[in-house]
């Protein structure tokens, strides 16, 4: 497909003879939120780590705006404009909120090896702007270690935005959050994607989030891509139901009598 920002072709990964990702192919366009779902151990994390360079693919190609990423280091891929957030939010615990974002901006501005002038006032305004975009500017000077988990996720998002990424990789962005926080975070992400013309690839276990916020969904099982499409197609896909959704009892509102029947008196 033309106009794709990210083109993944026949991506393949084997660990010691065991095939973790088996020839998957997909595209991602600017402005799009693409969800990558599947059972635990389906190869989602492996795929993620190959796209951002943490793992070197055994075969296939990953191209960002025509440029081949396979074989590049994570740092180099980051400099090309690929940001990432982690399943377990990782921020620098001994920093304040704004310092976390300043660190990302300083790295983007190649000032890591600057030894003398204090860091505290470098790019503080830029960092505050980014924090404002994720609604964290009011807490800028708090220690990151004191934040609620949902807020740490927002800080992480602000850090990931520091280098004006074209592509954002989000590994289970809403894990450990309450339903409303989840929706707020994903709505925020969607807004940023539209404003900045980015694309987002994310993995997620909360089907409520996926169906509400993903523009498109791809499903992995045992390293293979078994389905691709919009929410309705995926929802009714028999194979996906079998290996991943089950009966949907735990994420959709079942009709009342079914609940009553399931709970013994």
């Amino acid at each position: 497909m033309s106009g794709a920002l990210l083109e993944v072709r026949d991506l393949y990964m084997a660990f010691g003879g065991v095939c973790a990702v088996d020839g998957i192919t997909f595209d991602l366009h600017p402005g799009e939120l693409l969800a990558l779902i599947g059972p635990n151990g389906a190869g989602k994390s492996t795929t993620f780590n190959m796209v951002n360079g943490q793992l070197r693919a055994s075969g296939g190609s990953v191209r960002l705006a025509e440029q081949e990423l396979v074989g590049m280091k994570p740092r180099a891929i980051w400099r090309l404009g690929v940001g990432r957030t982690f399943q377990i939010a990782a921020t620098f615990a001994s920093f304040t909120v704004v310092e976390n974002v300043q660190m990302a901006v300083m790295s983007h501005q190649q000032q890591i090896f600057s030894l003398w002038r204090p860091a505290a006032n470098r790019y503080r305004d830029e960092a505050l702007m980014l924090l404002k975009q994720v609604g964290m500017d009011a807490q800028a000077d708090r220690a990151c270690s004191e934040l609620a988990y949902g807020d740490i996720k927002r800080v992480e998002l602000a850090m990931a935005l520091a280098n004006n990424p074209r592509l954002l990789l989000m590994d289970e962005p809403t894990a450990g959050m309450a339903p409303r926080e989840r929706n707020e975070l994903m709505a925020l992400t969607k807004r940023l994607v539209v404003e900045r013309g980015m694309a987002v690839l994310f993995t997620e276990h909360s089907m409520d989030v996926v169906f509400a916020h993903a523009d498109r969904i791809i499903v992995l099982a045992r390293g293979k891509l078994i389905a691709e499409g919009e929410a309705d197609e995926i929802r009714s896909h028999p194979k996906v139901k079998e290996v991943y959704f089950g009966n949907g009892l735990t994420f959709e509102h079942p009709p009342e009598p079914a609940v009553a029947a399931r709970i013994p008196a």
Partner: peptide
Amino acid sequence: APFGYAMRAGRDSSLRAEAIG
């Protein structure tokens, strides 16, 4: 200085530090 911040960043979370370059 930024260098000291980078040191602490790498110590606090090398995963995150690498991910921001």
